[in-house]
């Protein structure tokens, strides 16, 4: 059966457009629905919701600031920690490591993504939390205690625990995408660098990293999005304390964690609506973060080797 080229072109393009439109409509409906569900809370609290630090379900006073703080702090910190691990391990697997081990190493790092988030949560509670409390905290307070970041007593359940678990969880996202990106850099770039007498470091810096910069930012964006929305693992180790504290050793809360913790048992309509308001705010924050990363890509593009 042979379709005429024109027909095939039209049919195919229409199908593609339909597909994309369905996606857009579906997501749009989701956003609108959540805004609608948060109406009661929006009309009661308005923009004060964003600046208020009280979260009192009994007295029905709700404010999202501690959660916004927690979300942004854990996400950005975990991305900062995970980036070097992700990028450097991708470099090892694609450039520096032994060729035969390439596939095995790559797959092994991807296996971290295969671990369910609930297992991360349980491991975090039984293993990481005591580790932070008994081993890590004394070291941190001893050497870095002058920083407000590491002051105060610690019981393991803390922003630090959530950050560490998040960074472990997003490493495979960064690593596997970076691997694909590095592999797609034309060999000619690397050959040119070697021809000019570059050391392995310089070859990688100029011929692999520079051209892939936009791709790396894209991978980082995806990883950051995951960190912003991760629920289950964070919930078990962060303590859900609606407080803003400078110390990483104190418990905290993220928007995703309070949603998971309180949605099922929210009794009043205002409580539910406030949780949905929080979800809507998270949409906006995600959008801002995404725009920021696009802005970075646009800014770096002239400097990078264009394709």
């Amino acid at each position: 059966m042979k379709l005429t080229t024109r027909l095939e072109e039209r049919l195919g393009i229409s199908l593609i457009y339909i597909c994309v439109s369905v996606v857009v409509v579906l997501i749009f409906v989701m956003i609108v629905l959540l805004f609608k569900m948060s109406f009661i809370s929006m009309s009661k609290f308005g923009l004060n919701f964003i600046t208020s630090t009280t979260w009192n379900p009994v007295e029905e006073q709700f404010g999202a600031l501690p959660f916004i703080y927690g979300t942004i702090l854990t996400s950005i910190l975990s991305l900062t920690i995970a980036l070097p691990f992700g990028i450097l391990s991708a470099i090892f697997v694609t450039e520096l490591g032994p060729k035969r081990l390439r596939n095995i190493l790559g797959t092994s790092i991807d296996l971290i993504a295969a671990i369910p988030s609930i297992v991360f949560g349980m491991w975090g509670l039984f293993y990481l939390v005591p580790f932070i409390r008994d081993t890590l905290t004394p070291i941190l307070t001893k050497f870095l205690g002058f920083l407000p970041l590491f002051q105060g007593s610690s019981f393991g359940i803390s922003i630090l625990a959530a950050t560490l678990i998040l960074s472990i969880m997003i490493i495979p996202t960064i690593s596997s995408l970076c691997r694909e990106i590095f592999l797609s850099v034309p060999v000619t770039y690397k050959e040119a660098a070697l021809a000019l007498g570059a050391t392995p470091w310089e070859k990688i810096k100029f011929a692999v990293l520079k051209p892939s910069l936009t791709g790396i930012v894209g991978a980082a964006g995806l990883a950051l999005a995951r960190a912003l929305g991760e629920t289950m693992a964070v919930v078990m180790v962060i303590g859900n304390s609606p407080q803003i504290s400078l110390s990483l050793l104190a418990p905290g809360a993220t928007m995703a964690s309070i949603l998971a913790n309180e949605y099922a048992e929210a009794t009043t309509d205002l409580h539910l609506a406030s949780l949905c308001y929080m979800a809507s705010l998270l949409f906006i924050i995600t959008m801002i973060v995404n725009s920021a990363s696009h802005f970075i890509i646009k800014y770096f593009k002239p400097k990078a080797f264009a394709r």
Binding site: V23, G221, L228
Partner: peptide, 12 residues
Amino acid sequence: FIGILAGTPSIV
């Protein structure tokens, strides 16, 4: 929109 969906918590 895809960016927003990527950052949405799974519970939402």
